[in-house]
């Protein structure tokens, strides 16, 4: 059934890997299945971030506003999650996402995600770990980048 297919896709998403299949099924059922034709836009940079999208089938691209039109940043294969920041803290979209092919997605609302998450304390902890690991990677990248920058500035000064 379609619901099971969606659960299988959700299980591959790292953010959801800590949730049990039954809870994922609940999440899938509560979410909305949507269809986009090629070039249709899921969301635009600067919009309020209100949903996350899981690509069930089809590919999409991430675009950022540039001085001379949109700049393509990445391509999303089926099974990707996009806009997941919306689930945890909202804010504004930092990029635009557009369908490249006929695209089927599952749109997840933050309140449904939080409802599922709040039923399982263990999952919360596991998720925190996932997020913290990501933060650790990002932080070490940042430190490395800063060090590099400082070095190159030192180099240019001397």
């Amino acid at each position: 059934m379609a619901l099971n297919e969606e659960v299988n896709v959700l299980r591959q998403v790292p953010l959801f890997s800590c949730l049990e299949p039954l809870r994922l099924k609940k999440l899938a059922f509560a979410s909305q299945r949507m269809h986009y034709d090629p070039t249709e836009v899921l969301f635009q940079q600067g919009d309020d971030a209100d949903k996350a999208y899981i690509l069930i089938s089809g590919r999409a691209e991430i675009l950022a506003d540039g001085a001379s039109g949109d700049i393509r940043i990445a391509e999303l294969p089926p099974g990707s999650i996009v806009g997941e920041v919306a689930l945890l803290c909202g804010g504004l979209r930092t990029a635009t996402v557009r369908a490249l092919e006929p695209l089927d997605v599952l749109a997840i609302e933050p309140q449904d995600f939080l409802a599922v998450l709040s039923e399982d304390r263990g999952a919360c902890v596991r998720m925190m770990r996932v997020l913290a690991q990501r933060l650790a990677v990002t932080t070490s990248d940042l430190i490395a980048a800063r060090a590099e920058l400082a070095q190159s500035q030192d180099g240019s000064a001397t």
Binding site: L22, K25, K26, L27, F29, A30, Q111, D112, A115, V116
Partner: peptide, 17 residues
């Protein structure tokens, strides 16, 4: 099944379902 077993009924109604 989605709602969980009879124990889950005690909890607040599941709006997402």
């Amino acid at each position: 099944e989605l709602l969980g077993g009879p124990d889950a009924e005690e909890e607040a109604p599941d709006d997402s379902i």
